[in-house]
Amino acid sequence: MSNMIMASSSKTLITSPSIQSKAPKLPQFTTLKIRCQATQTSSNKIKTPTLNLNSLKSTAAIAAAVLTMAPPALAEQIEKAALFDFNLTLPLIMAEFLILMFALDKIYYTPLGNFMDARDKDIREKLNSVKDTSAEVKELDEQAAAIMRAARAEIAAALNQMKKETTVEVEAQMAEGRKKLEAELAEALGNLENQKEETIKALDSQIAALSDEIVKKVLPV
């Protein structure tokens, strides 16, 4: 339609020559009409002015007839330019729409809708399952903590045992060392005693000699 309107308006609105070409039609019409009148009046020329009035009346009648006759022709033109022209197109469009509706339902709305719903459900389930695993994660965490605790206990036990073992060893070694020391001490003490006795014995014998000397010195014999 725009094409046609373009065509018509380009004729009328843009190109002035076309207007000029059409403009002469109006004068033509008026001249024709005048000529018609002229022929009419010339045919009634002989008659009196009253008849002339009649002829004018008749031209008026013709004009009226033209006006009444023109609408059918004009109507024909307008009928072609029918804005509100209902015909078989209407039910055909209805049928086309319904067919389109069912076809689109089959290939678009239902399959894609189902697909989208399924995906939504899938995602929601996955999300929920992820939420559920938080408990599992906690459990695993606890397990890990327990394992750590056990390991720590084991290590502590081993450490204790090792400590114990080493202390026993050290003590044994210490006891041995002490025994040796005591033995050496006892030996040293025994030696000391022996030397003491010997010294005392030696002193005893010297005491007798000394006392004899002292007696000799003191007592002048």
């Binding site: 339609m1 046609m4 309107i5 018509s8 308006s9 004729k11 009328t12 207007i19 059409k22 039609k25 109006l26 033509q28 019409f29 024709l32 009409k33 018609c36 013709i62 004009a63 007839a65 033209v66 006759m69 023109a70 022709a73 004009l74 033109q77 072609k80 330019a81 029918a82 804005l83 022209d85």
Partner: peptide, 26 residues
């Protein structure tokens, strides 16, 4: 009655001038 065709022509001409032709159907 040569009035009729020429007047119709005129009307058609007027219609063509004024006509932004809407509602033409194939």
């Amino acid at each position: 009655m040569n009035v009729l065709p020429c007047s119709v022509n005129t009307l058609k001409g007027l219609y063509d001038i004024s006509g932004v032709e809407v509602g033409q159907h194939f």
